[in-house]
Design a protein around this nucleic acid. Structure first.
Lengths: 222, 222
DNA sequence: ATCCGCAAGATTGCCGACAATATTCGCACG
DNA sequence: CGTGCGAATATTGTCGGCAATCTTGCGGAT
């Protein structure tokens, strides 16, 4: 029989394993609970989540790998802040990776995939027409994930997922940029159409064009 | 207590810090002392390098981030084996990243850089002419690093360095592929010439052409 | 003879405590 | 009143030991 720990704050009962803890902290960062540049002191987090310091340490190591936090030697971890310049760099890299994926994806579209893509296309149109930005943003992510899956390119997929996590905050801001949806929606439709046509060149061109548009908008943001 | 000669595997007396230990294990993997798929048992490595098991653990975590080892939950770490397919994927990704860097680099070449690049060009020619493959391979790496520096693109640079470490073994085999130097040398020269001409389009084209050649050779290897 | 369960060994995962390092604050000194 | 030095504090880094988990080898039942 284990003694009940009354030090637990949010989680009652059992201590968190590092894997779960990593997810919790990740969500907290992505959700804005931990602000950029905020120091993540192991003891504090340990107490907050009722986990051992070793577990916190492991979790922070994981998140550092993903690029969500940065670790300064002997000076601890803090939430990594992605500057506009870095966000631009990330999108520039995404151009190289996503065009590759788009091209591969276009070669791998099965008839079943085509049906799914067609439905996604309609849902995107509907979301934009009804001005539902939240849904539109979700569908964009869904589409990007679908393309990564179709590409069957593990290396590019892995790198893209890392980059997406890092720039999640900017991605979010972008979605609510005035007039952004109106411009990007046709671009997304164009990418899907290229995939449906099994046309790698068109898929690459549409993807590149879309991402270059994002670079332009990012550069325009303060 | 300053670091002493690190040539010996067994350091008597002093324990190794995780940072140094990471480098030692990295070198051992890249140097072939640890074969692909070989299990890296923490206790064994701990004894071999006279380091604590925690230090070994940290080092293995670092190397897992870099993609040199893979960690199976509750089953330890082993040297990651890069298949030909994966090597092809890596080069495909490198196309996207290195063309980006080449383009940026071409825009950043100063007169001083041009002198250095010219010297590198001559050295490459000389190494090929004299059939010094080892030197040629070294110069290729030197050139790639130079281009990354010139690109001033931290994101792409970081990803490229990871990928290079992962595919070091294939990179090595490639360098000694029959007739490989004769074909790739002109391609490298072309890249340097494009940089010297400050021509981003030419730099991108030359880089892409070069890497696509590597993809072809890799696909031809068993 | 073969297969299944079970115990013994091997190996990683986790934790609390201690040591090392960086930062901050007080205090004497110019 | 500013400045450099040193102690006190805050925080991370490291270690050895124990618990959890996986693998392996053995014995008995069919």
């Amino acid at each position: 029989m284990t003694a009940m720990s009354d030090a637990a704050v949010l989680e009652s009962g059992d201590a968190l394993a590092p894997a779960d803890l990593t997810q919790q902290i990740r969500d907290a960062i992505l959700g804005g609970e931990f602000a950029p540049h905020q120091r993540l002191i192991e003891a504090d987090i340990s107490e907050r989540y009722a986990a051992s310091r070793a577990a916190v340490r492991t979790a922070l190591l994981n998140l550092a790998n993903e690029g969500l936090v940065e670790r300064l030697p002997n000076r601890g971890a803090r939430v990594r802040a992605i500057s506009i310049d870095e966000a631009v760099e990330i999108v520039e890299v995404r151009i190289g990776l996503e065009t590759l994926c788009a091209r591969k994806a276009a070669e791998n579209v099965t008839d079943a995939d085509a049906v799914e893509l067609g439905r996604l296309r309609d849902e995107i149109s509907a979301a934009v027409a009804s001005g539902n930005l939240m849904e539109y943003s979700r569908l964009n992510q869904e589409m990007d994930r679908r393309i990564r899956d179709l590409s069957r390119h593990a290396t590019a997929t892995q790198l893209l997922e890392r980059l997406r996590a890092q720039s999640a905050r900017h991605q979010f801001r972008l979605a609510y940029h005035p007039g952004r949806a109106a411009q990007s929606a046709p671009e997304h439709i164009a990418i899907i159409d290229a995939l449906l046509a099994r046309d790698p060149d068109a898929a690459e061109a549409a993807t590149r064009s879309h991402l270059e548009g994002i670079v332009g908008v990012l550069r325009g943001m303060d």
